[in-house]
């Protein structure tokens, strides 16, 4: 409905990586619909604030439920939805500024909880919507409007952060590969636990990294993207760390631990053993 809504006035810049991510997410949700038979309304997409957050308005065809909340809080909003209704498929869409700066405090707790949601993170290394300020994934020394003399803090490696915090499924992807990316998102949605699909989704206006990522043979530029070889065992945590030390941008599944119960499973097992009192019994316990 949204794309044809004349009142909706948000647009991405031409060539924005988020177009590809949107396409991938649509693929993944349609695949899920076909596989499970569950209606599109069974999906809830919780968006952060920023260019990427507007993805939730732009989906074509039948609609998932959407929540366009406040900056940095997509994770706890998603937790509320998921723990209220574990039967829903809850997806987060957010950018590097939203998820890794103002919202970073929520990643650790959700990883410990193994909240069963899939976070689709679009990393463009910049605050696009506010016009080009530096973000946690902007490189050291880079000049931006908010770092006129060069950025003086180190570039964050989000994949290492996720691994360290205990996120149970971590994949890395690229916005210009919609089909392979859709597959990673599907794997994330099907993963029992907290999954993050971290995607390089360049900003053509403020931080165009397409050439750097893909390389350019004519200019002799080597691509920074590289496919994770089939020999990598994603269940091996040490191997996952090793992979991240090799530099560049690995593409594929980095880490996958399916052995941990999810937060909603743990809550359910408590319900089974708690044997709670009725409100009447609770009231009676105060009678004298």
């Amino acid at each position: 409905m949204s794309k044809k809504n004349p009142e909706y006035d948000f647009k991405w810049c031409p060539g924005c990586g988020d177009f590809g991510v949107r396409r991938s997410l649509e693929f993944a949700m349609i695949d899920r619909l076909e596989e499970t038979g569950l209606p599109m309304e069974n999906n809830v997409v919780v968006a952060g604030i920023g260019c990427s957050g507007n993805l939730v308005h732009l989906l074509e065809g039948s609609q998932p439920y959407g929540f366009h909340g406040i900056h940095g809080r997509s994770l706890p909003i998603a937790m509320g939805v998921k723990m209220a209704r574990p039967d829903l498929n809850v997806i987060i869409v957010a950018g590097d500024g939203d998820f890794l700066s103002i919202g970073a405090e929520h990643i650790g707790p959700q990883a410990s909880r193994n909240l069963n949601v899939c976070a689709v993170i679009m990393d463009n290394g910049v605050y696009g919507l506010t016009k080009g300020q530096s973000s946690p994934t902007t490189k050291l020394d880079v000049i931006t409007p908010s770092t006129p003399y060069g950025k003086i803090e180190a570039q964050l490696n989000p994949l290492e952060l996720y691994l360290t915090l205990g996120v149970s499924f971590i994949a890395s992807g690229f916005s210009s590969q919609p089909r392979p990316l859709a597959k990673l998102i599907s794997q994330g949605m099907n993963h029992p636990g907290f999954s993050i699909i971290h995607i390089q989704s360049p900003c053509t206006t403020y931080n165009d990294t397409f050439e750097e990522l893909k390389g350019n043979v004519k200019k002799g530029i080597e691509p920074t993207l590289w496919d994770i070889p089939d020999t990598h065992d994603p269940s091996d945590r040490a191997a996952a760390y090793g992979l991240l030390q090799e530099g560049g941008v690995p593409v594929g599944v980095i880490y996958n631990d399916e052995s941990r119960p999810t937060l909603d499973q743990r809550a359910e097992s408590i319900r089974q053993k708690a044997n709670p009192k009725s409100v009447q019994e609770l009231m009676d316990s105060f009678q004298f």
């Binding site: 706890p76 909003i77 937790m79 939805v81």
Partner: peptide, 10 residues
């Protein structure tokens, strides 16, 4: 924000 999510979910 969690209760916002839960309220939204019914």
């Amino acid at each position: 924000t969690a209760i916002v999510g839960a309220g939204f979910a019914g």
